Amino acid sequence: MAATLNFEDWFGLTQLYADYAAAVDSGNWDLWPEFFVDDCAYRLQPRENHERGFPLATLSFTSKGMLKDRVYGIKETLFHDPYYQRHIVGVPVVRKVDGDRIESEANYAVVRTKLSEASTVFNVGRYIDVVARTPDGLKFASRQCIYDSEMIPNSIIYPI
């Protein structure tokens, strides 16, 4: 059974998920790290590895500084065919509330559109999150993006 939150915290959590999706879909990559606490974790991992407890992840960052470094790479050093992405995120399910921490999950699908091609489903899975209450509002302490398919495009440039 899911843990419960008061309405203000529930609204804040759902707004965090919606704002995150809007930010990473906007292409303004400088917004992305600001959704996280300084000492955060962000992982993109295949479902099979996650379920078997294997540590191998496609992307793994362990601080806000590493997220900012990824943003620099996206903007300045990575060369790729540009594309747009659109996140479709389900309503978060609250798994546990412990003081200023909320453990929650939500399904996601990311659709990718290259400039002269049809839109395609790019990545599908679920977020497993630890959200912290901070003086600046709710922030991700940990975000695991557990994707369902073992087959992914040869490069994932933008945040999921």
Results as ranks from 00 to 15, higher is better:
3 A>N: 14
5 L>W: 08
7 F>L: 15
10 W>R: 15
12 G>C: 08
14 T>G: 06
22 A>M: 02
25 D>I: 09
27 G>Q: 04
30 D>C: 14
30 D>L: 12
31 L>A: 10
34 E>C: 09
39 D>H: 10
44 L>A: 00
45 Q>S: 05
50 H>Y: 14
54 F>Y: 12
55 P>C: 06
56 L>T: 07
58 T>F: 02
59 L>K: 01
59 L>Y: 02
59 L>H: 06
61 F>Q: 08
63 S>L: 00
65 G>M: 11
69 D>C: 06
73 G>Q: 11
74 I>K: 04
75 K>T: 10
77 T>L: 12
78 L>H: 09
79 F>E: 11
84 Y>A: 14
93 V>Y: 12
94 V>L: 04
99 G>A: 14
101 R>S: 14
102 I>Q: 03
106 A>F: 08
112 R>C: 04
112 R>G: 06
114 K>S: 15
115 L>P: 12
116 S>M: 13
119 S>R: 15
123 N>M: 15
124 V>W: 07
127 Y>Q: 06
128 I>T: 06
130 V>H: 11
133 R>T: 07
137 G>Q: 03
138 L>T: 01
142 S>F: 02
143 R>L: 06
144 Q>A: 11
148 D>P: 08
149 S>R: 02
150 E>F: 12
152 I>Q: 04
153 P>A: 03
156 I>Q: 00
156 I>D: 00
159 P>I: 03
160 I>H: 06
160 I>P: 07
